[in-house]
């Protein structure tokens, strides 16, 4: 019974990541590319915060590798940045749970911004073409705006499917 439930809940987590991947690669018009919220880091932040004993740095690494394949970027690029995000979230998760939505959104802004900056630096280090302006950081802002609703949605999902 317990095993079945664990498998069941794992399925919910994987599905949430699957949807996040979908949203991450759905084509946008060119002008909106910089404003696309970073779905995968946000879903990762939520699960690390809610279930730090199940979703951790290892999961972040795997999630990042899959995102790399999906985006066709250098293998390890998103893996590295997501691991950093997961680490920071892991060390802050107790405080994060106490925060109000606005405070959480502020931290998500910082974390997604960090994620974007790390990706940008790694791209520069590996001599790939990247943005010449800092407009790509706008994605962090849209992510923070979306965070409260995403948080509520994922919490609903977690409670209704009894993921723990």
């Amino acid at each position: 019974m317990v095993i079945q439930q664990r498998a069941h809940s794992l399925w919910v987590i994987l599905l949430s990541f699957f949807v996040a991947y979908l949203l991450a690669i759905v084509p946008f018009p060119d002008w909106a590319m910089n404003y696309r919220p970073e779905w995968v880091p946000m879903v990762l932040i939520y699960w690390v915060m809610a279930l730090p004993y199940r979703v951790g740095i290892g999961s972040a690494w795997m999630a990042g590798l899959l995102l790399d394949i999906l985006e066709g970027s250098t293998l390890g690029l998103n893996a590295m940045s997501l691991v950093i995000v997961a680490y920071v979230t892991l060390s802050l998760h107790l405080r994060l749970r106490m925060f109000s939505y606005v405070q959480q959104a502020g931290l998500v802004l910082a974390l997604v911004g960090l994620n974007l900056m790390v990706t940008h630096w790694l791209q520069l280090m590996t001599n790939q073409t990247t943005a010449s302006s800092l407009m790509f950081l706008m994605a962090a802002l849209t992510s923070a705006v979306i965070w409260p609703s995403l948080f509520q949605l994922l919490r609903q999902v977690r409670r209704s499917f009894d993921v723990h």
């Binding site: 699957f18 991947y21 979908l22 690669i25 759905v26 590798l65 899959l66 394949i69 999906l70 293998l75």
Partner: peptide, 15 residues
């Protein structure tokens, strides 16, 4: 990469 490509195909398909 090639191996992981098998896992990512359904995502493209759904997208």
């Amino acid at each position: 990469r090639f191996g992981l490509g098998y896992f990512t195909t359904p995502v493209y398909w759904v997208a």
